[in-house]
Amino acid sequence: MTLQISRLIKPCLAALLATMFFFTAGAQTDSCPIRISVITCAPGEELYALFGHTALRITDSTKGEDIVYNYGTFDFGDPDFYAKFVRGKLDYFLNPEYYHDFIRFYQEEQRGITEQELKLTCAEKQAVIQALHVNLQGANKYYKYDFLFDNCTSRVRDLLQKHIPGLTMQTRLTAPGTTFRHMIHTYLDNGGQPWSKLGIDILLGSRMDRAVTVQESMFLPDFLMKGVDSATRQGASVVSARKQLFTATPVSHKQNKWVPLLVFSIFAFLILLLSRWKSKTGKTLTRIADSVLLYLTGLAGFLLLFMWFCTDHVACANNYNLLWMLPTNLVAGFFLWKRPNWLKKYFLYAGFLQIAILFAWLFLPQQLNISLVPVVLLLAYRYYQLSAN
């Protein structure tokens, strides 16, 4: 009898223990004192803040901790700050700060803040925290910032994808054919930054003009936020809750994005009028204007070469603006007043090159800024005049 009762009890006890373990494990997951959230801050007024910001928030209720881990920190007090920044060698680093200090800064700047709490197990949360702690150790905390491929947002994206098993973020976030330049232009236009847009279009080369993948599109905070919203694991959403921590009214920017085109058109027209002034004074002033034009484009061309070959900014490579910002113009400007025989041939070939650029404008592997058309037209005209006289 005792043996029979034992045989009946053991299976029931095993089932009870398994059930208790299942609910206990579930309770541990649900009652885990740690919360991990993705924080997305809206764009700001200044150029450095125009694209928004991403960070990770980790709250531990048992320890009373509420820490934000921010990969977008750099040392502005570095004596070589500007040199390192220009050459792409400036160290950015992971910096933990108290949540209230972090959020106060963005509230003062009137920038909206969105939080997406992630649905993770305790083990996965611990894995994320451990990865952050490893990143904080010694040289691990530093990295070479790259605006497109290694920034404060892509670092959070990569960390989540590495430490959340089964995470899928494959939903297309942009229209087919969207390039890095298209995405950046949207923020520059919305932020009323036409001159910054022109400068970026001049400095950044053709690598900006290939279509982005789903993964690459999440280099911008708003798009990582969309990616996290659409992220799934085994068919279930990874986001357990989404809330607006701070709401701010976006500032309306009325600056016309066509201002540079208008300014350059007026400039080109004035130089054209000056070149038609046939008096001795007019010819002298025209020669001075030509010299300035040659020196400026030549120096700009050398700057583009420097950014391409002498810095770590990969986005500055393969820059087709060098077809009109000819570095050799610096030499031509030096010899303009002496007029050696070879100079006429130089201007003739340079003029043909400008005409070829204008015909190929829409077909180049790089999207050139439309505001530059009057400048290229002016160069073509002045090269022709200089080759004929």
Rank of each mutant, 00 (worst) to 15 (best):
G227Q: 09
T186F: 09
T24D: 09
A236H: 09
E216K: 08
I202N: 02
A131F: 10
A380Y: 10
Y346K: 05
H100C: 05
D78H: 14
L224W: 05
I357R: 05
K144T: 14
L353A: 09
G199V: 03
L50M: 03
S31A: 12
L262I: 13
R339N: 06
H253K: 07
A317N: 09
D290A: 04
A25F: 14
G205D: 07
E97K: 15
A332F: 08
V86K: 04
Y381N: 12
S291G: 08
Y142C: 02
S206D: 02
V238W: 01
L188R: 01
L17M: 11
N318L: 14
L3K: 15
A380H: 06
P250H: 14
G88M: 02
I370K: 10
T19E: 10
I9E: 00
I58P: 06
L173K: 01
D189L: 06
I39M: 15
R87L: 12
A18C: 12
R210Q: 08
L353C: 11
D158I: 01
L120E: 07
F246S: 15
G205L: 04
K84D: 11
R233K: 04
D101Q: 15
Y92L: 00
A123L: 12
V331S: 06
I58M: 04
A360Y: 03
S61R: 13
L358F: 02
L17D: 02
V86A: 03
Q126W: 06
Y82C: 09
A248I: 15
I39F: 12
Q161L: 08
K338D: 04
L159A: 12
K125L: 15
V68W: 00
A27E: 01
K345H: 13
Y145T: 10
T297C: 11
T40R: 00
R181S: 09
S275Q: 13
Y69H: 04
L330I: 08
F363E: 12
G72W: 15
E45F: 00
L305M: 15
E109F: 01
N190Y: 14
I5H: 03
R233V: 05
N319Y: 10
H163N: 15
I129K: 04
Q367L: 14
S291H: 06
N321L: 02
G227R: 10
Y295A: 12
A388T: 15
G333V: 07
L353N: 13
L372H: 07
H53D: 08
Y145D: 03
T179D: 05
Q255E: 13
T2L: 03
P11D: 11
K254Y: 06
F180H: 09
S196A: 02
P374M: 05
L296Y: 10
A300I: 10
F147R: 05
F363P: 02
L56E: 00
D189H: 07
T62L: 07
D189M: 04
Q28V: 08
T179I: 07
Q234F: 07
S291Y: 13
H182M: 14
F359E: 01
P340M: 11
G72A: 10
N321Y: 03
Y349N: 10
F309V: 08
Y349G: 09
M183F: 03
L372T: 08
A350M: 10
L204F: 04
F93L: 03
S61M: 03
V373L: 00
S237R: 05
A268K: 06
L94F: 11
T249W: 13
Q255N: 10
F223G: 02
I9G: 00
A317V: 10
M325T: 00
N321E: 06
L50C: 13
K10A: 00
C32L: 11
